[in-house]
Structure formats: structure tokens, C-alpha cells
Nucleic acid binder design. Structure first.
Length: 433
RNA sequence: GGGGGCGUGGUGCAGCGGCCUAGCAUACCUCCCUGUCAAGGAGGAGAUCGCGGGUUCGAAUCCCGUCGCUCCCGCCA
């Protein structure tokens, strides 16, 4: 008999089927017992009422891998209205040691450190699984929408020869005796690829060697990147991002309503546009509304971002907020200066429920201007010759953004620590598991 | 790089100078139970209170050091 998964079993009432999975729970009622079997699709209740079948579970711990053959029966008292009767159990992989902590309860109890140390088994918890299912659908939605919009997916190297953008915060490695680095961003490559496809996107890891130790930083994360050519200005990129997010959120509500329900996630509504504030205006607003004077500062502090989001939620009815026109001094050399005020750039951040989740903007596309800026930023043009070549031979006005997958997931699901939104987080002290 | 907080059975917590022979929940072991769904009931085992030093008649509890974890700021997604 072919093994089927638990979601399919529900549609086979009256048939004898073969299921296989993990012993998620076992409730021994004396003369019979309920075995909750968990597989990749979900959970399913099997009722064991033969002593010889119940005997097979003796001495086995939760998470033992089992195969169960039985008849699918409608039963209003069963979770989901169906259960397995007349069961025959086969033990596939016995587990003899108790779990480090309970993973079959509603809530996951252990603290972050204990959980992460035991992630291989902890991730089996239904809430954790739901979380990373949502993560998968965010990536799927991102990909799906961009392909509809004529973007081409690319994969760019994660081992790079020069520590380009800011120089300091990269991991150095020994590349056959020569220095090389882990890419802190696909920035240069995706821009280069605008010269090929006009519109490109990439889902991939980026590495930051910063010794930051906060609830919203890790040293490796997944970046959802796009770059698009022939734009008017950064607002075209913002509009594309708005479409991407709207599509992702719509997709989530359609594809994984059960996961959203399990995690009590409220998916934000995105209207026609996401409200936007210029940085100086945002700072003025903070001064007036919250009394703190950060006017003239080149960037927002976390507290400011929370205030602005509170303002946006209360006054603009949006949980998302664009901040635009960051100063040239705070942005990379390739950021396009604003036409009216060249001390500002055509750039933006997207804040979501108090946290920065996206950074983007329009880039400089004229070779001479880019070269001059690189020099101004103290970058040796020879170090970025490959990047510059794309511009020497003609680049259109373009721009893009980078969105932190785990940041988006964290804010969407209301997690307090980015590590919880990361499958196997890498931070200052953790490189395993 | 700077600053806070916390380390108590497997896990999560309480206790914060003597009533602690360290308590509770859950997990684990034994038994009972024909409808559980965070199952329930009875019993049991399991901790030199992170480690080292000090104060005190007396330290899980106060002080110092140390290690580990965690959070905030800087930086960023």
C-alpha cells in the first residue's frame, strides 16, 4: 500500500490507508488510546484499541517515527472530524530518550538559548513550523510577483574579491592564499545585471561581520533584493515594493490561513499607496509630537522609528511607512542625489510596525558621476573595475531595494527577537546548529 | 566598542539572610481510567541553587571576581 499524507487521509473516509510520521502525542486512556501522528502536512488522530498495538508503544518516547495502517472514519468527537480506526502500528525509528523540552504543547516553553541549542527538534513544534511555512510563502510570493512583472531571477556570488561598500563589516576568508570576503550584499552584481535583463531579483544570504548584539540583528540573513532599470526616480521602486508587499500579504492570507491563525498573525492592509515622509519632515514631526529634537541628524534612532510608526498607525491608518531623502553622507556612493537638494538622496527606508525592514533607492547611472563619487568616498576605482565597466558601457536610470526576510517575518508575526524568525541564526556567539 | 538584567531538578518559574530537609507547573517512571484533543487521577524518582572567593553564628538569598545567557545603544535588513 502506498503511504499517503495526513491531509489526504481526511479525504479518504471509509478507505484503509497507510500513514507515517512522528508520534506527536499519545494519550493512554486505559482500554484504548489516542495517538496523534504528525507528518509534513499536519496531524492526524489514530485510535488504538487493541492491547497488542498499544503494547508496541511501550517504552517509546514522543517523536518516535511510526507507520500506521488503518481505516479512515468520520467521527464528530475527533479533531477535524476524522480519525483512523482498526490501526496496525509499525515502529520505524524508535526514540528512547525523553525530549529536551515539550514540543507537543500549545506553547513552546524554553528560552531562546535553550531552544536554539535544540533547534533540530524544537523546530518540529507546530508553531515553529507554521512560522517557517509563512517564511517560505513570503519568498514564494516575492518570486511570483516579480516574475509576473518581468523580473529575472539571478544568483550572484557570495564569495567576493573586494570589500566594497563600506569596507569594515565583512568576513574575510582565505581564498587559495588570496584575501576574499563573504558578500555583505548583492548590490553591485544586481546593478550590473540591470544592464542585461533590466529587471532582476535575488533571494539569497548576506553576511555582516558587525559585532552587533541586539534583538534585530544577526550576522547572516536572507535578503530579498530587486533592481530595475528605466525608472523615473525612487518612487517607481517604492511603487514596485508596495506591489510586492501587497502580493505577498494577499498570498499569505490565501495560502496559509491556518498558520496565520495558529500564530495569531494580523496581516496588514496596504491601501493604494504606503504613506511616505521625507526624513527632515519626519524629524520635525517627532519634535512636535514627541518633544525630542533630532532635527538635522542624518538618521533615525530605533525609538524614532517606533514613534513614526505609532504616528502612521494612528493618524495615517498604515502599519507601514516610507521615510525618504536620507542624507548623502549616510548613504553609499552610488546613491542618487536629489535634484533640488544634493545633500539628500533619492533613497528610502520602509518601516513596518516600528522596525526598518527595507532599504532602497535610485542609483547613479552615469559613469563619470559614479566614478567621481567613488573617489569622494575613498574607494579605489580599480577595486570595483567590474562594477564600473557596466556603467562605462551604458546603464539606464535604475534603482532597487533590499528587504530582510527575517525582519519582515519578525514584524509580521510579532516576534521579539530576529533569531526566532531565523531558522538557524548566526550571531556573535552562535555558529551551530 | 559602551551600558543594564538574569543564571534554582530535563524545561519554564517561585523562594531573595534562619520557618528551605529548596517549592510549583510540566516532562520522565509505575499504576488507574472507553472519547482524549495543553486529557484526567494516584504514587515515585530527579537539583551539591553556574563556578570561585568573601561577609556572617548561619548564604540559593548579601559583597567581589569569573564564565554563560539575555536586552539596550552604536551599526544596519
Amino acid at each position: 500500500m502506498q503511504r499517503i499524507r495526513t491531509d489526504e487521509a481526511a479525504t479518504r473516509v471509509g478507505e484503509r490507508v497507510k500513514l507515517a510520521g512522528w508520534m506527536h502525542n499519545w494519550r493512554d486512556m486505559g482500554q484504548f488510546g489516542f495517538l496523534i501522528l504528525r507528518d509534513g502536512a499536519g496531524t492526524f488522530q489514530a485510535v488504538l484499541y487493541k492491547a497488542e498495538e498499544m503494547e508496541k508503544l511501550k517504552g517509546l518516547q514522543y517523536e518516535t517515527v511510526l507507520q500506521i495502517e488503518g481505516v479512515v472514519a468520520e467521527e464528530p468527537r475527533a479533531p477535524g472530524g476524522v480519525e483512523l480506526h482498526d490501526c496496525q502500528v509499525t515502529v520505524i525509528s524508535p526514540v528512547l530518550e525523553p525530549l529536551p523540552f515539550e514540543i507537543n504543547k500549545k506553547e513552546l516553553k524554553p528560552g531562546l538559548d535553550v531552544f536554539l541549542d535544540n533547534a533540530p527538534v524544537g523546530l518540529r513544534h507546530l508553531r515553529k513550523r507554521a512560522l517557517f511555512r509563512i517564511s517560505a510563502e513570503i519568498m514564494a510570493g516575492f518570486r511570483e510577483y516579480l516574475m509576473q512583472q518581468g523580473f529575472v531571477e539571478i544568483q550572484t556570488p557570495k564569495i567576493v574579491g573586494s570589500a566594497t561598500e563600506s569596507g569594515a563589516n565583512v568576513f574575510a576568508l582565505d581564498y587559495f592564499g588570496r584575501p576574499a570576503y563573504l558578500a555583505q550584499s548583492p548590490q553591485f552584481y544586481k546593478q550590473i545585471m540591470v544592464g542585461v535583463f533590466e529587471r532582476v531579483f535575488e533571494i539569497g544570504p548576506v553576511f555582516r561581520a558587525e559585532k552587533h548584539n541586539t534583538a534585530r540583528h544577526t550576522n547572516e540573513y536572507v535578503s530579498l533584493d530587486i533592481e530595475m532599470g528605466f525608472i523615473q526616480d525612487h518612487t517607481d521602486v517604492m511603487a514596485m515594493l508596495t506591489g510586492v508587499l501587497r502580493h505577498i500579504f494577499n498570498r499569505l492570507t490565501q495560502v496559509c490561513p491556518r498558520e496565520l491563525e495558529l500564530l495569531k498573525v494580523k496581516v496588514p492592509n496596504i491601501g493604494q499607496t504606503i504613506p511616505a515622509l521625507r526624513l527632515p519632515d519626519a524629524q520635525e514631526l517627532i519634535f512636535k509630537r514627541y518633544g525630542e529634537d533630532c532635527r538635522g541628524e542624518p538618521d533615525l534612532a530605533p525609538q524614532h522609528e517606533e514613534w513614526l510608526c505609532e504616528y502612521a498607525a494612528q493618524e495615517l491608518g498604515s502599519e507601514l511607512l516610507f521615510i525618504t531623502h536620507y542624507p548623502t553622507s549616510k548613504r553609499p556612493f552610488y546613491a542618487m542625489p536629489d535634484d533640488e537638494d544634493p545633500t539628500l538622496t533619492k533613497s528610502f527606508d520602509l518601516l513596518f510596525r516600528g522596525c526598518e525592514v527595507v532599504t532602497g533607492g535610485q542609483r547613479i547611472h552615469r559613469y563619470e558621476q559614479l566614478l567621481e563619487n567613488a573617489r569622494k568616498w575613498g574607494i579605489n576605482p580599480e577595486d570595483i573595475a567590474g562594477y564600473l565597466q557596466a556603467f562605462k558601457f551604458g546603464m539606464p536610470p535604475h534603482g532597487g531595494f533590499g528587504m530582510g526576510l527575517e525582519r519582515l517575518l519578525m514584524q509580521l508575526t510579532g516576534l521579539k527577537n530576529l533569531r526566532e524568525a531565523t531558522l538557524f541564526p548566526r550571531d556573535l556567539t552562535r555558529v551551530a546548529p
